[in-house]
């Protein structure tokens, strides 16, 4: 990289950043290039893909999309994934929010112990509890059952949600709650009418991060949902790519259909996503 001199006009300062932009362009090509190839391949017919597997399509065909939608059984799998996401997010926000409220505002006796437990629980390998959990769930009839998997997702996402929501609620001034309590509000009312409305950005962040985690989740979905009618978009895509591994037009179109909604929502809420995911990473 170039040596920075202490006396610089604005022009030379811009000039000294040329190496930065060069490196960034290479990184950009590395990160986004493969996604462009995916998009291109989804718009080619099979003959063209054979001749030109990496480049821009010479003629555009949209046929791959409806075909992938049908063959990939997207109408069922999208619904399954949506149920998993909605169920998990609703429960994690409600139950995790309650727990966070108790930790942040009710001086939960033994609160530090609970935080420690959540920290340990969140760092236990899934593969440690996966095996007994699977056979236990099967006895209870919760395998191949969306509700059964939602329960697991709630448990797995609980620590992150509680930590993030708690750190959000701790910052809220106590005046509002105390005012409500003096007016005779119960703790439940203080929670739902005062604390939740004041900390909704925290709930939004957690909701987005948990939605993405559940939508993208592979290991648990593949273990607990083995029946084709219960497949999520992710496990169905996995199955689909082993079946149609040589038809890249089809697998690319299916991939674009799965990625597009993620990217749109990510770009709209990028600030919340990045904040939530980096804080989640930092807190284990």
């Amino acid at each position: 990289m170039m040596r920075a001199s202490s006396t610089k006009s604005k022009g030379t300062r811009e000039l000294s950043l040329i190496p930065n932009y060069t490196i960034l362009s290479l990184f950009l090509l590395f990160a986004i290039g493969p996604l462009l190839v995916l998009l291109f391949n989804s718009l080619k017919n099979r003959a063209e893909l054979g001749n030109n597997p990496l480049g821009i399509p010479t003629s555009i065909t949209w046929d791959n999309y409806p075909r992938a939608w049908d063959v990939g059984n997207f109408s069922t799998t999208t619904l399954n994934s949506a149920i998993l996401v909605a169920g998990t997010v609703a429960a994690v926000l409600l139950l995790g929010g309650m727990a966070a409220y108790s930790l942040a505002k009710l001086d939960l006796p033994g609160g530090n112990g609970l935080m420690l437990y959540l920290l340990v629980a969140s760092s236990l390998p899934i593969h440690l509890f996966l095996v007994p959990l699977f056979f236990f769930w099967r006895q209870l009839g919760l395998v191949n059952n969306l509700f059964g998997l939602i329960l697991i997702y709630i448990a797995v996402n609980a620590p992150l949600a509680i930590f993030l929501l708690r750190s959000y609620m701790v910052q809220l001034p106590r005046d509002f709650e105390d005012a409500a309590r003096v007016d005779g509000a119960s703790e439940w009312q203080v929670f739902t009418k005062v604390v939740v409305p004041l900390s909704w950005p925290g709930f939004l962040t957690v909701g987005l991060v948990v939605s993405l985690a559940v939508w993208n989740e592979f290991l648990l979905a593949t273990v607990f949902l083995t029946d084709q009618s219960k497949f999520t978009v992710v496990t169905s895509y996995y199955n689909f790519t082993t079946q149609f591994s040589r038809d890249w037009t089809l697998t690319s179109a299916a991939a674009v259909m799965m990625i597009a909604p993620i990217l749109v929502i990510f770009l709209i809420f990028q600030r919340q996503f990045i904040e939530g995911m980096t804080q989640g990473g930092m807190k284990g």
Partner: peptide, 26 residues
Amino acid sequence: KVLPWLFVAPILLINITVVLGPALSA
């Protein structure tokens, strides 16, 4: 003492059932 734990109980019970119990039985 009791009310704060009532707020925590549902999600804690789910977590114990899914994570702690099976981890110990492993």
